[in-house]
């Protein structure tokens, strides 16, 4: 009887240990290195006010670029991102067409949106600000994102990954997108989720 109880207790302890090891956890290894953005785990999302009654989300599905992190000297960090405008998706074809046309993005004339960093300031290990030049609709303006480092560490395929979330608010009129400001808000919340694979 005692032997059975001991065996059961051992089995439960082992299962708990395995479960603990399997639980999702942030990897806190060093993010230092140069990374190529993994487009399948990265995305640009935005949220815009609609008719003064709601906030509507949209996203750009394609993204490419790279980032370099020097954990000891963040002022040397670099980020470069390129987003094809026609990867826009708002879950409705007609609205996508309207947004990609001359009313807003004019994707035929301005097919890409780019961001190139000019400075990174970290206030602690995981949080800081990312400043750089955003080129959208043929207009380049300085933009500052709040930056959060999510984690870094090895992946199951022998690689090494690191990820960030960057958020900012822009005014579309600053980028020459002035149409229908009485129906679609001027301010747009932008969030970029990036995962990079170390080179």
């Amino acid at each position: 009887m005692n032997k059975a109880i001991v065996t059961l207790a051992a089995a439960l302890a082992l299962q708990s240990g395995i479960a603990l090891a399997d639980a999702y956890q942030v990897q806190n290894s060093s993010p230092a290195g140069t990374y190529k953005i993994d487009p399948t785990h990265s995305m640009v999302q935005f949220r815009v006010g609609h008719m003064g009654v709601s906030e509507f989300p949209g996203r750009f599905d394609a993204i490419s670029g790279s980032f370099t992190v020097d954990a000891a000297h963040h002022e040397a960090d670099k980020v470069s991102v390129e987003v094809p405008i026609d990867s826009l998706d708002t879950n409705f074809d007609k609205r996508n067409k309207d947004l990609l046309g001359p009313d807003f993005f004019n994707a035929k004339q301005f097919p890409t949106m780019t961001f190139t960093s000019t400075g990174v300031k970290m206030k602690n290990a995981n949080e800081g600000t990312l400043t750089g030049n955003l080129t959208l609709h043929g207009v380049t303006k300085p933009v500052t994102f709040s930056l959060r480092h999510v984690g870094a560490g090895p992946d199951p395929w022998g690689g090494y990954r690191s990820g960030y979330v960057a958020k900012t608010t822009i005014r579309r009129s600053d980028f020459g997108m002035n149409y229908m400001l009485n129906g679609i808000s001027d301010t747009i919340e932008v969030q970029i989720n990036i995962e990079g694979k170390r080179q």
Partner: peptide, 12 residues
Amino acid sequence: IYGIFAFPPPEP
């Protein structure tokens, strides 16, 4: 409606 008179124009 549009109100942009820049030269050269940014869009057609």
